[in-house]
């Protein structure tokens, strides 16, 4: 069982089954108790996930990799790294993720076994309503 501390509204949604919480791709996930019913319109934004096993860790990494917003990694050393997770290489004990941090020229590589928690802090840029808004505008014009 994975621990999830809060969603974007600050509601506690802890102790939910990881398999329910982290489908891949991540856009299909429900974190908000009063959010949209269509899974495609739901996002991880605001969630904090603490994986408790290697299997859970891999699943959360896959979801973070598909997330189009910044995240904050909380390491076991208590260091926190914020940025965009754009890559993951899963190769047993040598597995790592790569992040672009704001203001840093190159990517930073973080071994997976050092990760304690995932904070989905940044707005999910792929969860917008731009298309619906545009269609609505065109309909009103006609």
């Amino acid at each position: 069982m994975v621990r999830v501390d809060r969603n974007r509204e600050g509601d506690v949604v802890s102790q939910r089954d990881l398999m329910d919480l982290l489908p891949v791709p991540i856009v299909g996930m429900s974190m908000s108790q009063d959010g949209p019913e269509d899974p495609a319109e739901q996002s991880l934004h605001g969630a904090v996930v603490y994986p408790n096993s290697e299997q859970e860790l891999l699943k959360v990494i896959e979801s973070a990799f598909g997330y189009r917003g910044d995240i904050m990694l909380e390491l076991k050393s208590r260091e926190c790294i914020s940025g965009y997770l754009f890559n993951r290489v899963l190769d047993g004990p040598h597995s790592y993720v790569e992040m672009f941090q704001p203001g840093q020229a190159g990517p930073r590589r973080i071994p997976c076994h050092e990760i304690h928690a995932f904070h989905f802090t940044g707005y999910d840029t792929a969860s917008g309503k731009s298309w619906e808004a545009w269609v609505q505008t065109r309909r009103q014009e006609k």
Binding site: R68, G69, D70, G83, Y84, F86, F100, P102, G103, G122, Y123, T125, A126, G128, S130, W131, W134
Partner: peptide
Amino acid sequence: LACAGCGKIQYPEHVLDR
């Protein structure tokens, strides 16, 4: 532009600046 069928540009600002 932000075309309806495009899935290439949905990134945080600091990524779009790269």
